[in-house]
């Protein structure tokens, strides 16, 4: 099967790429000026994790919208798979951010707007799964959780864009700030490592996501066979 061979090749590529990112993050990229010790290196993992958490949220939205149109159980499985990864990565981003905050500012939690945003994202994912747990009927579970995902997506922008602007933020301005210009003055090796890591983590997301969806597809197909 060529399909499988391509897949295997992609796995090795992803593994190699991630290894490269890790090595680059610790040895190749210099540590940033103005940060305590080597603490700035966490950015190479923290930022991509937060990015994947947001990406998963968007994939979840698209799958949820599709489910309500197609009523295909596989679309529900897609939404759930994205949300599962979103939960893991938003947890990782929260924890890594917290560790960094403790090193830099001697406090795990500072009520920084972006900290609050990721924590809320975490809450949304947790609520999403609490809802799924509470509904035994599969068709109803799928449409209720899709509805909730869409509702949560509509309120998120208010959190990310409306609330934070009113506060002062500890975070450096986003890579591409509100003005659309490159705000963060990073050393080029740091920038390359960060972008490499973003690509790697996105690949990791795609791999885990397709794995989960393929598993769901197999389960659905088996049930179809059993019922037929």
């Amino acid at each position: 099967m060529t399909d499988n061979r391509v897949r295997t090749a992609l796995h090795w590529l992803l593994g190699g790429w991630m290894l490269l990112v890790i090595v680059a993050a610790f040895f190749w990229a210099p540590s940033a000026v103005g940060f305590k010790g080597e603490s700035s290196r966490i950015v190479f993992f923290h930022v991509p994790q937060a990015w994947v958490a947001v990406l998963a949220f968007c994939v979840n939205l698209v799958a949820s919208l599709r489910y309500l149109r197609t009523r295909d159980p596989l679309d529900d499985a897609r939404a759930a798979a994205a949300a599962r990864l979103g939960l893991v990565f938003s947890l990782l981003a929260t924890v890594t951010g917290s560790i960094f905050a403790n090193v830099m500012w001697n406090s795990f939690w500072n009520w920084d707007p972006r900290e609050v945003s990721i924590a809320i994202l975490l809450l949304v994912y947790a609520a999403y799964f609490a809802l799924r747990e509470a509904v035994p009927d599969e068709e109803r579970r799928a449409s209720l959780s899709a509805a909730y995902a869409i509702l949560a997506f509509v309120t998120m922008p208010f959190l990310v864009f409306v609330v934070p602007r009113i506060y002062w933020s500890l975070h450096p301005d986003t890579i591409i700030g509100a003005t659309g210009k490159l705000k963060l003055q990073m050393e080029s090796r740091m920038l390359q490592t960060l972008f490499g890591s973003l690509v790697g983590f996105t690949g990791l997301f795609v791999w885990l996501y397709t794995l989960d969806v393929r598993l769901a597809r197999v389960r659905l197909a088996r049930r179809e066979r059993e019922e037929a």
Binding site: I120, L123, V124, A126, A127, A130, L131, A134, V135, R140, L144, A147, Y148, L151, A152, T155, F158, L159, V162, V163
Partner: peptide
């Protein structure tokens, strides 16, 4: 949504909080 799930007030709070906080 919660009425169609378990109907518990706990679930209502869990689902409301992230939406209502902002």
């Amino acid at each position: 949504i919660i009425a169609r799930a378990s109907g518990s007030t706990t679930l209502f709070a869990i689902l409301s909080v992230p939406l209502v906080l902002p």
